[in-house]
Amino acid sequence: MDDQALLRYSRQILLPQVSIEGQERLAAAHVLIIGLGGLGSPVAMYLAAAGVGQLTLVDFDTVDLSNLQRQIIHTSDRIGQPKVHSARQTLEGINPTVRIHCIDQALEGAALEDAVREADLVMDCTDNFATRFTVNRASVATGTPLVSAAVIRMEGQITVFEPGNPDSPCYQCLYGEGEETGETCSETGVLASLPGVMGTLQATEALKWLVGLPTLRGRLLLLDAMGMEWRSIRVPKDPGCPICGSKVQDPLLPSGEKGRG
């Protein structure tokens, strides 16, 4: 680590929970961010600022005027640009030492699984249940940890799934296939700052995992921003889960489990 890096990350290195060793772990890490909207904006910005060495950005959409109320990584002069390229411009301005790879299309099937497998950690910053279930399946299949958050109206939630840990639930354990509401922010609205709150917490959980600190695994953190009340609930692993249950997970662990470096 050169003098410029020591200065850039000095306030973080001062933390005994991080230190130079933790900062070097961040520099060696590769994080996949799926969705560069309200959640993905603060996630990408803080991970870049913190010194995560490689970020892969995935989003098929373009910047729209209606995005700018909450998607702070984009600007008015980039309306019409692919979100991943708009995001890259912002991130390069924050930290030009971070390696950024852009995928400006939706990932599905083998392509999604390959992208998840190549990363150390996945950030689900999407806004619909179908994609979250798909990303979860790829996470479990490859043994790649997943930080998942969601926001709607004035409510938010966040948790961490670690498929390499035998006690960790997955997204399917939390929400069965028949429980999705199908609601999105474009239909019900969302307070401008709320994705920033939950996205910042996502980035915090990601940084903690990457340096080897405890995370929200097994707990779902819920925010009611109207009453400014937080609630934490336990999320047990479902042994009968069709995605991560023991009958389907055990054969994957020897080749799929990922550690923290």
Score class of each variant (00 low, 15 high):
153 R>Y: 06
16 P>I: 10
179 E>S: 14
154 M>N: 08
150 A>E: 08
108 E>Y: 06
105 Q>Y: 08
106 A>C: 09
87 A>C: 05
4 Q>F: 11
42 P>E: 00
244 C>K: 12
104 D>W: 03
30 H>E: 14
152 I>F: 04
257 E>I: 15
140 V>K: 09
181 T>S: 14
138 A>Q: 05
101 H>W: 05
160 V>N: 05
175 Y>F: 15
136 N>G: 06
201 L>K: 00
147 V>L: 09
137 R>A: 15
20 I>D: 01
121 L>V: 13
49 A>E: 04
9 Y>A: 03
52 V>C: 06
66 S>K: 08
193 S>P: 02
93 G>T: 08
133 F>E: 10
204 T>A: 14
41 S>W: 01
178 G>F: 03
133 F>N: 06
45 M>V: 07
159 T>P: 01
190 V>M: 05
260 R>N: 13
246 S>H: 10
224 D>R: 02
200 T>Y: 00
194 L>T: 00
202 Q>I: 06
224 D>S: 01
117 R>Q: 13
88 R>D: 02
73 I>N: 00
83 K>L: 04
134 T>H: 11
40 G>Y: 01
70 R>T: 01
92 E>D: 07
55 L>P: 07
53 G>Q: 05
230 W>Q: 06
206 A>Q: 05
154 M>L: 13
41 S>G: 01
249 Q>L: 15
208 K>W: 09
236 P>Q: 11
61 D>E: 11
48 A>W: 04
254 P>Q: 09
178 G>S: 12
102 C>V: 02
80 G>I: 08
